[in-house]
Design a protein around this nucleic acid. Structure first.
Lengths: 340, 340
DNA sequence: GCGGATGATGTTCCCGCTACCAGAGTCCGG
DNA sequence: CCGGACTCTGGTAGCGGGAACATCATCCGC
């Protein structure tokens, strides 16, 4: 199976053993159509025998394409961005692309400019920006980049290719669930509003709440962290005048429930809480969290489809809407004094 | 700042504008010592002006080094492996290396052979395997690889470079904590024992428990998931005859507490639970989880140090022990009828 | 004042692959 | 039976860097 000599065989060695020119080998590798079947088989046999692998660096140099997608994620700790990244990587690998990723915020902060530099220096064929802050997008817009750029963000943007998970649908599902339980006084604990996803959830919440005639409270803006929500809950003075909280992500929902618990406010008895993300622990925290699950796998596929089309200068395919799903668990119930 | 023409400048264009040969530019880039200061400055100015970036593919082709480390992680969902991966990436980037990673189990399973193939085809300079199963290691041992390979695993292994987090220390801390609270009957809920880390924790638990004269129960082997632990807890028939559980990771600890709660067994009142990992939510689940935190950042640094030394054929540095830390929260207390 | 070490730079070739052009054989219709 | 189209294969010239060696100055000690 393996060749005896330690160093890697190259295309010319394959060619020599197969009795053809190295160009024919190259054509076999690249599935050029007009190769005689016998020749192709002979070449493939030699490739197998030598365990030959094409040298990607050489190929990249010759073709000016690296078969690599660069990904910039806003943060490597939040559930949404990391899930998107993983899905994207898996899909990309399936289609022969490699992925290089870089987190803007992972310990210390890296500027969008640095991230783009790092990735373009690696010679990526396209760039994907996941779950960004509006400030990152603004910075990005100022950088001249001559490869396709896709941004995963809620609204279309003429400067970039865009895809998104439908934040509106997920949020609507959550609000409708609370309303159907009988809640009419709902607080929204939002993510940082410079995150476009947080902003989109906030807007969708506002719109849906209004259309149901829900009495909204001024929203509380958090930072995605359980700590923040915990501190917020601990700081509540009187019994709240709302009966439910729609929280922009599960981490904050869990922190909120923790803080509420310490203040003697029970979920869902005194207050219903619905989260967003369906993190792995959401089903097992106490009480198990009602939350919204998004389809990251489909998102990954959509991203790679678009990017490949852009790289290969094919027509950009239309992306179908990616549905969200509400998972009703135990952190939501009818408000007190209401029969479900 | 940017040059007018759209296509990227190359080293010869820089050379021409600086009035030197391309080799002088190359030497400036690679910090070759004998360059006249005036020349160096001139070259750097032109580089700046053209916004020149060296082409990594060309460099890789010429040097036979890609400045890229390949990482194989067993799973992209568990907290430990992903934390290690992120720390490693950040450190590597800081030293001019890029990282390509691949998860053996992310949706569907990829064989170690496929993973190695994928990464070596990308031309990585070294391989790092994180948090592996013993079966993966066995498979790895059969594959002939002619780049340095480092495995993050609890015990030294003559076939590879190795580093590890000290599972023994963390486990010992946890057991000592339970013993000091007065627990003498402790159950261990382990991770899948073909995971080396799970095995190491199990062994360390056994050793420490024995040395304290703790009455161990036959260990329960889980799969890292909260679901498993939940099901296990739900299946408990009578009140348990142990007063504490040492769980091999936080996810299972949370699932366990959930299941216990449904069976009417309260934590820590009836049973103390200590986890392992300190996942982000550990401080906020109910009750907040006593757990062991490991220093992944230090691990990342150690990995990159070793790998770089191996790649550059320098002497392999000695790795200092990476300490673990016990975080005592509310899921542990003295057993009933005991005064703390 | 001269040989040798050292500093500072240039020339050439090659890394492994593909784009591009060329060329030989084959088939077919008029 | 000849020209054109199509099939299949080969040769050559880069892609953008760096290694190795060559080439000059310059400096130094004796």
């Amino acid at each position: 199976m393996a060749n005896t000599s330690a160093d890697k065989p190259n295309i010319r060695q394959v060619a020599r053993l197969a009795g053809v020119s190295h160009m024919t080998v190259s054509r076999v590798l690249n599935e050029y159509p007009h190769i005689k079947e016998a020749t192709r088989r002979r070449v493939l046999e030699v490739i197998e025998e030598l365990d030959y692998r094409p040298n990607m660096a050489a190929r990249a140099l010759a073709t000016q394409k690296s078969q690599r997608i660069g990904v910039i994620v806003e943060s490597a700790v939040e559930f949404g961005p990391t899930s998107t990244l993983r899905a994207l990587e898996a899909t990309a690998r399936g289609t022969g692309y490699a992925v290089s990723s870089i987190a803007l915020e992972d310990g210390h902060r890296i500027s969008p400019q640095e991230a783009v530099d790092n990735l373009t220096t690696q010679g990526v064929d396209a760039l994907c920006v996941v779950a960004p802050r509006s400030s990152s997008i603004a910075a990005l817009r100022k950088i001249s980049i001559n490869i396709p750029v896709l941004v995963v963000k809620p609204d279309k943007d003429p400067s970039f290719l865009t895809v998104s998970l439908d934040q509106k649908e997920g949020t609507t599902l959550a609000v409708d669930h609370l309303v159907s339980l009988g809640h009419r006084d709902i607080l929204h604990l939002a993510g940082p509003l410079d995150w476009l996803d947080a902003r989109a959830r906030e807007r969708a919440f506002h719109a849906r709440a209004k259309s149901w005639g829900v009495r909204e409270r001024p929203i509380v803006v958090g930072d995605w962290s359980a700590d923040f929500a915990y501190d917020f809950a601990k700081g509540i003075r009187d019994r709240p005048d709302y009966t439910a909280v729609f929280v922009a992500n599960d981490d904050m929902a869990v922190g909120l429930i923790h803080g509420l618990h310490e203040r003697g406010i029970e979920v869902p008895g005194d207050l219903s809480v619905v989260g967003f993300d369906d993190v792995p622990l959401a089903a097992h925290v106490l009480p198990p969290l009602t939350t919204v699950r998004q389809n990251f796998r489909a998102l990954g596929v959509a991203i790679v489809d678009l990017l490949r089309a852009a790289i290969e200068e094919r027509e950009i395919p239309r992306v179908t809407k990616i549905p969200a799903e509400l998972l009703v668990r135990s952190s939501t119930a009818a408000p007190r004094g209401e029969d479900s």
